[in-house]
């Protein structure tokens, strides 16, 4: 059984997109497939607008109305069992800024279906793992950018998911927080958690991830083992081009 299997996904934000039109930009994802083995640390790379965030939102059930199939640990992602296996840290820091870290974790813990005791126990664990335990009762509004990113990750880890989807989890944070986040992720992966990491930081993707998928303009352009690639950044630019992506 694979942790994640995506088969021939086609999706457009424009509901009236004409399939017969061969204009690729009509589609955020076009006939895209990808699979991730259980326990893998997988990099999902692509230039801006390639469709990475769309793919994450689609896997987590936020976007509907697509063609193809998304299977998470043997269950379609429309199945609640699939969603309960996923921990998702979105690209924007998605926490309630007027609440404390503990209150945030409680909200998401209850919504995830954890018991009160479990929430208490796991909150302490994830806050410890992310270095936020001393600030657990402080309002999130006073957190620094790095702390917010770590809390964003802590929420994703709270319900002990088997598949972790991280959409640029270190964007805009200092090297200290970044290292802390990646150490936490490496530890989680060693414990058997499957991780799909979306990032623009190539060195870290190469250092942490065993497999990689590169997508561009909604389609897969490479999928394979990281060890096959000497210099990921060079490889990435060769495959996706040097032109600016402002569209």
């Amino acid at each position: 059984m694979k942790a994640l299997e995506i088969s021939r996904i086609t999706f457009s934000y424009n509901k009236h997109a004409d399939k017969s039109v061969a204009e690729a930009r009509e589609y955020a994802l076009r006939n895209f497939s990808m699979s991730v083995e259980v326990g893998q640390f997988h990099a999902l790379l692509g230039p801006n607008g390639a469709g990475k965030t769309t793919l994450m939102r689609l896997i987590t059930g936020q976007l509907r109305g697509y063609e193809g199939e998304v299977i998470v640990f043997g269950h379609k992602n429309s199945d609640k069992r699939a969603l309960s296996n996923i921990g998702y840290a979105p690209q924007p820091v998605s926490v309630y800024t007027t609440l404390t870290a503990l209150e945030n974790l409680r909200v998401f813990g209850v919504v995830a279906g954890l018991s009160d005791e479990k929430i208490k126990q796991r909150s302490e664990e994830v806050l410890k793992e992310t270095g936020l335990l001393p600030y657990a009762k402080k309002s999130v509004s006073v957190y620094s950018g790095g702390m917010l990113r770590r809390l964003n990750l802590a929420v994703a880890l709270l319900h002990s998911p088997f598949l972790l989807l991280l959409d640029e989890p270190t964007v805009g944070v200092d090297p200290q927080s970044r290292n802390h986040i990646y150490e936490t992720l490496a530890k989680m992966n060693n414990e058997g958690v499957t991780i799909v990491l979306c990032t623009h930081i190539m060195e870290e993707a190469q250092r942490l991830c065993a497999t990689v998928t590169v997508l561009d303009r909604g389609s897969e352009i490479f999928s394979g083992y990281m060890k096959e690639i000497d210099n990921l950044e060079k490889f990435f630019l060769e495959r996706t081009g040097h032109g600016l992506r402002d569209d």
Partner: peptide, 14 residues
């Protein structure tokens, strides 16, 4: 919606 917390709730089995 702007912060993504609403969308985040939809990623849970609820």
């Amino acid at each position: 919606k702007r912060d993504g917390t609403l969308q985040r709730l939809f990623t849970y089995p609820v």
